[in-house]
Design a protein around this nucleic acid. Structure first.
Lengths: 207, 207
DNA sequence: GTCTATACTGTGATAGAC
DNA sequence: GTCTATCACAGTATAGAC
């Protein structure tokens, strides 16, 4: 990109400093809370004064945005690492996907809060930061497609089931396994639903 | 309670002013966001200056606490209004309960956010404000008990299913019906689960 | 280029006059 | 009870030292 190797080196240095700041921001968010840590706290953590942070991020919201992007890339990587249904079968594949989601949620509740519980005052993620989330969703759609799920209703059902487990686990049994241990049951329910409703009917004729 | 009718009248006046302030707080929360409105905004809404609010609430957190208590009493009332399974049958009863929860969530998303998505910075509700939530949960436990659900696993499954639908609906289709329309399916899945697993086994021998 | 000192605005909260 | 004045602290803008 840059015309000289000098400015390329500067660019790399800037990127490294940005990473340092982001890592410190994650630490502070996990220690004090996502919205509790201050720009002065964060600056002190990396050996700066608050105004210096604005050389690397346009503001606190931009830091949240970069954290959101980082978290979403980690989530996308976790989804990409899932074995496909063709390799291990539909049931094992769905169980793996659900477990991965629960693991992702419980491993770092603050990250889960940032990514999946839109909870920061006036902030919302930029389209670029959100892009990996869309990609992960599309990947999950393909994943389910291989198991025979093609209708939107079943896909919505799947997201409701998994997000319900994750939310309850994080909110009501942090660090525990109460809802995590329901994953197998939930997958079997989902599979039963597919068997009875292969094309996602609207149930007009239900008794 | 008070020794004189004069102080009783004062107490009633204070309670009325508290209600006025709370109503204005709900309005502002719905307009600007739960954590966005300021004490000065709120005071102006009721014709006061900010410091006067501290005569009625010890601080902003106390206002959140009173709002939380109010919201939870409304939720408890909604749960109490549900027809029991003995009157309309298990399936209709569960559908009614789930629909009521989704309605409660979508009718006032800000209230849902306050009650069910613990999202305010350092705040958490007082035990007194939380008490109606426990009562509603116990009522729901009785509700499910009549339909034959007595084990904790199935109860946890039920809360995961309904909260998953509600969260997805509020987060991804506010004002719409996408997850709301899945209630009947989810109830049928839940009932199928009960049929196959009447005592909430731990599935040690599952193939 | 990178960082600092300084300062501005707005927040929740408090002290004390009336 | 309600006010004015003020506090400490937040995020952030700017000007300039090195």
């Amino acid at each position: 990109m840059d015309a000289t190797s000098g400015s390329a080196r500067v660019t790399a240095r800037r990127a490294a400093t940005r990473e340092t700041i982001l890592a410190a921001a994650w630490d502070l968010a996990r220690e004090d809370g996502l919205t509790v840590f201050t720009m002065r706290d964060l600056a002190a953590r990396v050996g700066m004064r608050a105004p210096s942070l604005y050389e690397y991020f346009s503001g606190k919201d931009a830091i949240y945005d970069a954290m959101f992007a980082q978290g979403n890339r980690a989530f996308l990587a976790a989804v990409r690492a899932l074995p496909g249904p063709t390799e291990i079968g539909a049931r094992a594949s769905l169980i793996g996907a659900a477990r991965a989601f629960l693991d992702f949620a419980t491993t770092d509740p603050v990250r889960f809060q940032l990514l999946f519980q839109r909870s920061i005052a006036g902030w919302e993620p930029s389209p670029e930061a959100y892009a990996p989330a869309i990609e992960a969703y599309e990947l999950m759609r393909v994943h389910l497609g291989v198991t025979g799920v093609t209708d939107q209703r079943s896909l919505d059902l799947w997201t409701a089931l998994t997000s319900g487990l994750a939310h309850q686990q994080v909110a009501n049994d942090p660090g525990g396994r109460r809802w995590h241990d329901l994953v197998d049951d939930v997958v079997d329910l989902f599979l039963a639903h597919l068997t009875h409703d292969p094309e996602g009917s609207t149930h007009d004729g239900r008794p």
